[in-house]
């Protein structure tokens, strides 16, 4: 049988739901080296046997040569601001009391760079090419996380 559309008390237009999963992300072979290094106050990179590039953060392989990196090497915790931005809102779009400066920092002798926060510097003072150095969390407070470096500060 077929019927004309009857009067219905309401149209059902949307169905609400969510997709929730718990994840465990292993650090990987290279990641374990990197984060273990941070806990010791060292920045670890990986060296490509073919082109000699030192990748920071380290990678198990050289993305250029696709060769397995053969050596874990410590790089200085000093480098150069490659580019930077000033954040006026936080991760959920909430306004920040004080603007924060985030920079991509190329560490001395390394390929690639770390995204991190700049401290002890006003937004208008930051510039591309600025020399910066890591300020570490005290040894007992380090957890093997990127936040073991509190921020990078300018060096003269």
């Amino acid at each position: 049988m077929s019927l004309e559309r009857p009067r219905l008390p309401h149209e059902i237009r949307h169905w609400f739901g969510d997709m929730e999963c718990d994840y465990v992300y292993t650090l990987g072979i290279a990641g374990e080296k990197f984060y273990a290094g941070l806990k010791e106050g060292r920045i670890i990179g990986s060296k490509c046997p073919s082109c000699g590039a030192i990748w920071v953060p380290p990678s198990l392989y050289c993305p250029e040569c696709f060769e397995e990196t053969s050596e874990w090497v410590e790089v200085p915790d000093e480098g150069t601001v490659y580019t930077f931005t000033v954040a006026y809102v936080g991760p959920d779009g909430e306004p920040l009391e004080e603007p924060e400066v985030y920079a991509l920092i190329v560490l001395d002798g390394a390929n690639g760079g770390l995204l991190h926060k700049l401290g002890e510097v006003r937004p208008e003072e930051a510039y591309i090419g600025m020399r910066v150095k890591a300020v570490w969390a005290p040894e007992g407070e380090r957890k093997g996380a990127i936040t073991d470096i509190k921020y990078f500060r300018p060096v003269e």
Partner: peptide
């Protein structure tokens, strides 16, 4: 069931062996 390597690192092993 569980591997320490990241997905990228596992991919690298397999790709490298194939090459």
């Amino acid at each position: 069931r569980r591997m320490r390597e990241t997905g990228r690192e596992l991919s690298f092993y397999a790709a490298k062996m194939a090459l």
